[in-house]
Write a protein that binds this DNA or RNA. Structure first.
Lengths: 340, 340
DNA sequence: GTGAAAGCGCTAACAG
DNA sequence: CTGTTAGCGCTTTCAC
C-alpha cells in the first residue's frame, strides 16, 4: 500500500529522457537500442519500480506470453498438487503462468461452473491453457478458440479433440490394485464409485476388466457412490451388510475410500472381520498415520514435468496436439490392505 | 475450440447496423438507447456469442468491476473453503470475482511467493482485493496501491494497516479448547505449534493466557513444531517421552494434530494410555471417521458472508477500512478428546 | 538507431 | 438519442 499508481512505460521514458517507443523496445526486444540509452532506461525503470503490464501487452499483441492454468476442483488435493508442481517447474524454466479456478464447489460437493471465469482467463489471451482435472462435463471449455493449445491434466477429454491429455493409465492402476489384493489372498473384491463422468466410467470398466483378467470376473461387484466420503460410507455399509460380503473394497478415489474405511471400522468395532480398502490418488490424507490407506500414486511430478516439457519445448504443443499421454501409476501399499 | 476469435464490440455494432459506441452503451448503461436499437444490439450479440472483454474495460476505465481473490495456500482446505464460499456468495449477489494464487507450496511445505502473480492480479485492476490466509510475511503485499481496498481473511496483517481483517477470535478459541479439556478432567495440557508468523505466535500466546486464566499457568508447556504433520508427530513424541508427559495436547492446527494423533496411536499400541488431542480449523479431514479430531470451526460461512457483505454494501469497504472483525469460533468435540 | 503514429477492445467526454 | 473522438498501457509498423 504505497505507490498511488503503478508507473507506466511513459513514466520510464520521461525519466530516461527518451520516447515511449524506445523505452518499450528495451523491454520487448534484445537489440535495436544503443547500449547507453538502454542502460538509462533500465535504470529509470528500476528507480520507479516499473514492470510491464502484461495484460496491456497481450491486448495489443493478440496473445500473451503466459500459460493459463485452470483448476477444476480446488478441493481435490491431487489436482492442487499437479497445478502447483506445474507452476513451479514453469517458473523455474522462466515461463510465466497464471492460475485461476473456474469451478466453485459447494458444501454438498456439487460443482458449479462459472463460465465467466473461463471467459475471463481466455480474454487474457494465454499462449496455452492447462486444464487440471475433469468435470462431469467438459463442454464449458468448448468455447476455447482453436488458436490456443489446450493441455488437460489427469482427466479424459473426448469433447476436446484437439487437446493434449496427460494422465495416469487407469487400466494399469486397476490391474495393480486387483493383483495386490489377490496376492494378499483376497478374491471377493468389490468396487465402489460413481459413474457420472467419462473418467469414472472408464475406471469402473478398468476394474471389471482387471477382475476378468485375473479370472475373477464372476466375483466382480460394483456399487454406485458419488464422489464423497459419506456416499462411500453408505455404499460400503450396503455392500458389507448384504449377503456374501466382499473381503476387499476398491474405491474410485481416496475420498470415497475414507468413507469405506469408516464403515469398515464401525463393523470391526461391532465384532466383524476387517475388510481391506484401497483408494486412488494418494492424497496427503491417505498418508496420515490414522488413515494409512493403500492408494494409487498418479506420479504427479511426472505429469507436471510432462506438461512443462510440452509447453517449453519449441513446437511442443504442436507435436502433441490431440494426443493422449498415459503415464505409469504406482501402487503405494499401506495398512488398509492386509493378508486375509 | 470453435470460434477462431472472440467477437468484439465492433462485430456486434456492424451486425446490428449501429456505431461501436452505441453498441457499447447497451452493455455499460441502463438507458440512453432506444428500445428497438437496444434490442437489435442484444440480438446481434447473442447471435455472435459476444461478451464484453472485461480486461480491456478495466484498462480503459482505470478500475475493473471485479473483486480479486488471492489464495495464499492452495494446500490449506480451510482457506480454499473460505475462498470458495466467498466466491459463491459474491456470484449470487452479482459481483464478479477472479481468483488466483500467488504462492506455490513445495512438497516439503515451503511456500514460495511469486511476486509477479501479485503484480499480475493488480494489473487487472480489481475494485478490491481479498487475501485469503496468511504468510510468514505479508510484505510482498505492500506493493498494493492505497487506492484499492484490501480485505484479509483468516489471518493477522499488521503490515497492512489499511486492510480490513476478518478472522476468528483466537483467544476465545483457545479458551474453548482449554476449558473443554479441563471439563474432561485434564490439567496437564501441552501446546504444539510453530512461531513463524504473527498468527502462530498469537495463537500460542492465547494458549498460555488461557492456561493462566484457568489457574493452570504452572502446567503450561509449549513445544515447537512447523506446520506439517511429521513435525507434529516428532514434537508429540518428544513431549510424550519426556518426564511428566501431558494427558492432552492442543495443536496449532489440524495438520499438526494429525501428526500428534499418529504419535499417540503408536504409543497406545505399545501399551501407553491414550492422550487427548485437539486441532484447529476443522478441515474436512478432522471430520473423517478414521480421524475424528476435536477441532475449532472458524465459521467459514460467517467469514465469507462478512467479506461479501463488506464488498457489496455501498461504502462497505470505506466503513471497515483498517478494522479488525473478530468472529466467534466454535468447538467441535469428536473422539480425539475424552474424559481422563 | 530513433521517434511518430496507429491500434488491441473498450469507455467516457464530447458534439450533432 | 446518436456518433465522433480520444485514450488506458502497450507493441508494432513505418518513416526519419
Amino acid at each position: 500500500m504505497v505507490a498511488a499508481k503503478r508507473p507506466t512505460i511513459r513514466d520510464v521514458a520521461e525519466a530516461a529522457g527518451v520516447s515511449k517507443s524506445l523505452a518499450a523496445l528495451v523491454f520487448s526486444t534484445e537489440g535495436g537500442v544503443s547500449p547507453d540509452r538502454r542502460e538509462k532506461v533500465l535504470e529509470a525503470a528500476k528507480k520507479l519500480g516499473y514492470t510491464p503490464n502484461q495484460w496491456a501487452r497481450s491486448l495489443r499483441s493478440g496473445s500473451g506470453s503466459f500459460v493459463g492454468i485452470l483448476l477444476n476442483d480446488l478441493h481435490n488435493p491431487l489436482l492442487i498438487q499437479i497445478a502447483d508442481l506445474t507452476r513451479k517447474i514453469l517458473l523455474e524454466r522462466g515461463q510465466q503462468s497464471f492460475i485461476s479456478a473456474a469451478v466453485i464447489t459447494e458444501k454438498n460437493g456439487k460443482r458449479i461452473v462459472d463460465p465467466s471465469s473461463i471467459h475471463s482467463l481466455l480474454d487474457l489471451r494465454p499462449k496455452a491453457l492447462v486444464i487440471v482435472g475433469g468435470l462431469p462435463d467438459l463442454k464449458p471449455f468448448k468455447q476455447i478458440p482453436d488458436t490456443i493449445p489446450v493441455i488437460v491434466a489427469s482427466s479424459q477429454a473426448s469433447s476436446l479433440p484437439n487437446a493434449t491429455i496427460v494422465r495416469a493409465d487407469d487400466h494399469e492402476a486397476l490391474r495393480l490394485l486387483v493383483r495386490h489384493l489377490i496376492e494378499l489372498g483376497h478374491s471377493k473384491i468389490a468396487y465402489v464409485g460413481p459413474t457420472d463422468s467419462e473418467n469414472s466410467i472408464a475406471r469402473r470398466d478398468a476394474y471389471l476388466s482387471s477382475m476378468e483378467f485375473f479370472g475373477l470376473g464372476d466375483l466382480a461387484v460394483t456399487q454406485l457412490a458419488d464422489r464423497f466420503e459419506d456416499r462411500g460410507y453408505a455404499a460400503a455399509k450396503l455392500l458389507l451388510q448384504g449377503a456374501n460380503p466382499p473381503t476387499a473394497i476398491v474405491a474410485f478415489n481416496d475420498n470415497i475410500a475414507f468413507g469405506v474405511q469408516s464403515a469398515v471400522q464401525e463393523l470391526v468395532a461391532a465384532g466383524r472381520n476387517p475388510v481391506a480398502v484401497t483408494g486412488f490418488d494418494n492424497t496427503f490424507v491417505a498418508e496420515l498415520g490414522m488413515v494409512s490407506l493403500t492408494s494409487i500414486e498418479q506420479e504427479k511430478e511426472a505429469i507436471a514435468m510432462k506438461i512443462a516439457e510440452i509447453l517449453t519445448t519449441p513446437d511442443g504443443v504442436e507435436d502433441y496436439r490431440g494426443q493422449e499421454i498415459k503415464l505409469m501409476p504406482r501402487l503405494i501399499a499401506r495398512k488398509s490392505t492386509f493378508r486375509i
